[in-house]
């Protein structure tokens, strides 16, 4: 009870909810919704693609690199729920996958610069994690599988498609962070 009061007092001292937090919620919320909708409608229906790319994977890595692991963890959970709600059936396991990606970025990307090259390097282990996740999903929901068939039929096309379409996502996240970062930098200068 006293802890709650101290949090409220602290919040009041700081002038209530920070505007950049609201901005971040709105921007990341919209980004999550648009990416999930694009995955389940546009990309899932394109017949020329070998598989539907996992754009949220790229968004989570980019946010972890450009805005911090805390933001990325929250986007991972919210994004996972949204992706499963729009394009999944049954249990919602994607938040666990994306959180695993954030942890991977945290472990491997600790000493990396926030650059596109780091993003590409971190995308590779994340794709491996995604493939493991898909494999477990197939094993749980489809039943009997042959590894070779799943590798060529699902895992490889999915990895290639995700790798290609995740590259622009890095720059999209960068663009989305501009209003937040600008404000923060201006405040720091003052």
């Amino acid at each position: 009870m006293s802890r709650m009061r101290s949090i409220r007092r602290k919040s009041r001292r700081q002038g209530g909810i920070r505007p950049d937090l609201v901005k971040r919620i709105v921007i990341f919320g919209l980004l999550t919704l648009i990416l999930s909708a694009a995955m389940s409608s546009f990309f899932a229906q394109l017949t020329c693609l070998p598989a539907t790319p996992d754009l949220m994977l790229g968004a989570v890595i980019a946010i972890a690199l450009l805005d911090g692991r805390g933001s990325a963890a929250i986007v991972a959970v919210a994004g996972g729920i949204t992706v499963d709600a729009l394009g999944g059936v049954g249990a919602s396991l994607s938040p666990l996958l994306y959180l695993g990606v954030v942890l991977t970025v945290g472990l491997l990307g600790e000493k990396m610069l926030s650059s596109f090259l780091s993003f590409l390097l971190l995308l590779l282990p994340s794709l491996f994690l995604r493939a493991l996740f898909s494999l477990v999903g197939i094993w749980l929901f489809v039943g009997e599988i042959t590894f070779a068939g799943v590798l060529t039929g699902v895992l490889l096309p999915e990895a290639i498609s995700t790798f290609v379409f995740c590259c622009p996502i890095y720059f999209l996240v960068m663009l989305c962070l501009l209003p937040i970062k600008d404000r923060r930098e201006r405040a720091a200068r003052l």
């Binding site: 409608s41 539907t52 394009g87 489809v142 699902v154």
Partner: peptide, 14 residues
């Protein structure tokens, strides 16, 4: 149809 499953291993339509 308004969307499809994104998991690449099931043919589920919305």
């Amino acid at each position: 149809v308004i969307s499809r499953a994104i998991d690449n291993y099931s043919t589920v339509l919305t």
